[in-house]
Design a protein around this nucleic acid. Sequence first.
DNA 1: GTCACATAGTTGGACGTCCTACTACCTGCA
DNA 2: TGCAGGTAGTAGGACGTCCAACTATGTGAC
Lengths: 168, 168
Amino acid sequence: MSAPDRLNLDPIAEARRRWADHGWEAAADGMAAVTSLMRAQQIALSRVESVLRRHGVTFARYEVLMLLYFSRAGSLPMVKIGERLQVHPTSVTNAVDRLERAGLVKRSAHPTDRRATLVELLEPGRELALAATGDLNAEVFTDPGVSPAGVTALVDVLTEMRRGAGDF
Amino acid sequence: MSAPDRLNLDPIAEARRRWADHGWEAAADGMAAVTSLMRAQQIALSRVESVLRRHGVTFARYEVLMLLYFSRAGSLPMVKIGERLQVHPTSVTNAVDRLERAGLVKRSAHPTDRRATLVELLEPGRELALAATGDLNAEVFTDPGVSPAGVTALVDVLTEMRRGAGDF
DNA sequence: GTCACATAGTTGGACGTCCTACTACCTGCA
DNA sequence: TGCAGGTAGTAGGACGTCCAACTATGTGAC
């Protein structure tokens, strides 16, 4: 081939250029940021899920297990789980259903509020959480795919974004 | 209350601290980065979807429309769409099914490869893409929720991450 | 030329997320 | 004390994503 055998360009950089070319300069950077975020999350989630799959859980369920693991009593009301993880109540119901069916957690009555349901971490759940964390730490978190400086910058920017969205 | 009326702390910063306390220092930053990414994506997607809902499309389908809008011929093979958007072929089938049912795109035969299917942008799809982009630019992309410097830093870090993952 | 292998697209299923709607229960105000 | 309004949790449904499996078609090596 006479043309420089140019491999694929970055699709997001291309989109950003097209945005600018169409007179949308003011929005081009934001578009690139949002689109990058979508794709990077997909990449990170995929890496995480491939590790967790060996343990028979998904990231959503793993997060529930870790939340319970770190909780003082080893149990939390459903609504607290939803608040901490920033997900819809029905997503908590879904995750707890599956964790309970797998024998990793147990639902029990709240001692004072009969509307509420406590989710309690069972021993198999605790063991799975620790084992999965070991693998995640070794295979993903110690090298998340960006330089240490990039990691810091990333967390800082996203913290700003989350705070602006009212996350905390 | 005598205690400093401390509002909710950042759940991710808390998790990071717990990670360090448990002897997982080497992984704590990576964990925080990945978790931040998950949550920030959810926030961004939510903002985008709330705008697109008015136009009757989702972000996945909007991306297909824009890809066709920017394509030279106004049409692309399914597989090309999947490659550019980095999604599974079945996700493309799903999105094109719905776009076609809505009269926004049309499937047609590929002129030389009988295995392939071309997706062609129809006039209503082109108009919807432009109108939705106008709203997205005005309501999300011009102010994505982080400072301009943050936007640049974010895109840079995520580009590094995507390149490392073999995205382009 | 043929056949093994690769590629394009679809179908069916699992899973997570959200939304709407609904039941059960709690709480504060009149 | 009693009722209105808020809160906890669940059911059903829409949607996107992936995976596994399958059909149809293209291609290269023998």
